[in-house]
Design a protein around this nucleic acid. Structure first.
Length: 297
DNA sequence: GTGATCGGCCG
DNA sequence: CGGCCGATCAC
């Protein structure tokens, strides 16, 4: 089953927990990718250009757009890179900037992304080129919802990924040009109603939708239910169940990136990955477990 | 203090 | 399950 009707969803990839205590001692630098893709250079280049200092801990410094306001708060989100999947070949392509990514994400449904689209910033790229990266476990993935509007000019939409094992995966908030941090739609609306200095800025331009974690156990389950699968249809997979309990101890803080180091065969099919995530089929679940390094294969 | 993060309530 | 916001934590 190749990539049928699947318009590729846009993704956010690889994040670092925003827990400060984790940031300091965190050794695993950026992406220990498996494939020898020079795209990393490309990434580096973009980093340099966008003037972000420490890709080391995976944060991106968002340059304050309009003028170098003195107060321009250093705001960043926990996303290290942005990728989108080609609707034709299903390969993942880096998006050079958060802004570009937001632009693509906004229209991804009506206007699917193709490798050709990336020609805009990479004139040579085609579907025949190697994927920029593969889902091999060396990156953590957050799968974005499509059709999230771009933030109004001068506003920033910030995504903070929470620490592993918590009750929530992430938070979205907006930073107004004034530097005001807005955490919910209600706050946005009340702020806008009291600050008429933002003509044309309206509520529908905001979305607090958070992406979903690819790793199923990143977020603590609300129902500490027995690990028995509830969504993997009837077919129980005992093999799968046991390993899961291993990683869910309680040792909350400890996100060893590594857990999945033993990735032998990666280079799996991106399309499946997407399908797996979206549909959660049995085979998908299996794939996921492989992905997480919880089963042998 | 202030602001960021987390938890948990509630619809 | 997602939105929201107070409690709590880190600076």
């Amino acid at each position: 089953m190749r990539s049928h009707g699947y318009t590729c969803l846009s993704f956010v990839s690889d994040f670092v927990p925003c827990d400060r205590s984790l940031l300091s001692p965190r050794p695993p630098p950026p992406p220990p990718t498996t494939k020898p893709f020079h795209e990393l250079e490309f990434l580096k280049e973009m980093e340099r250009k966008s003037n972000r200092s420490n890709a080391a801990n995976g944060t991106e410094v968002v340059p304050c757009p309009s003028s170098s306001k003195k107060t321009s708060k250093r705001v960043w989100d926990s996303i290290a890179a942005y990728t989108v999947q080609c609707a034709i070949c299903s390969k993942w392509r880096f998006i050079p900037s958060k802004e570009k990514y937001e632009e693509i994400r906004e229209r991804i449904t009506e206007e699917p992304f193709f490798c050709d689209t990336a020609r805009e910033w990479r004139p040579e790229i085609t579907c025949d080129d190697e994927p920029d990266l593969v889902k091999d476990g060396s990156w953590r993935w957050a799968i974005d919802k499509p059709s999230i509007p771009q933030p109004p000019p001068g506003w920033q939409r910030i995504l903070r990924i929470r620490a592993e094992g918590g009750t929530k995966f992430a938070d979205v908030y907006y930073v107004a040009p004034s530097g005001k941090r807005l955490r919910s739609m209600v706050e946005v609306e009340s702020y806008l109603s009291e600050h008429l200095e933002y003509p044309g800025v309206t509520a529908p331009q905001f979305s607090f939708q958070i992406p979903a974690p690819l790793e199923e156990n990143y977020v603590r389950k609300r129902h500490a239910r027995s690990t028995t699968s509830h969504k993997m249809s009837g077919n129980v997979m005992p093999v799968a169940v046991n390993p899961i309990s291993l990683i869910a101890p309680d040792q909350s803080r400890d996100s060893h990136f590594g857990g999945e180091r033993n990735s032998t065969s990666d280079a799996d099919t991106p399309a499946e990955g997407l399908e797996l995530f979206v549909k959660g089929t049995d085979s998908g679940a299996m794939e996921k477990l492989k992905y997480l390094g919880l089963v042998q294969f």
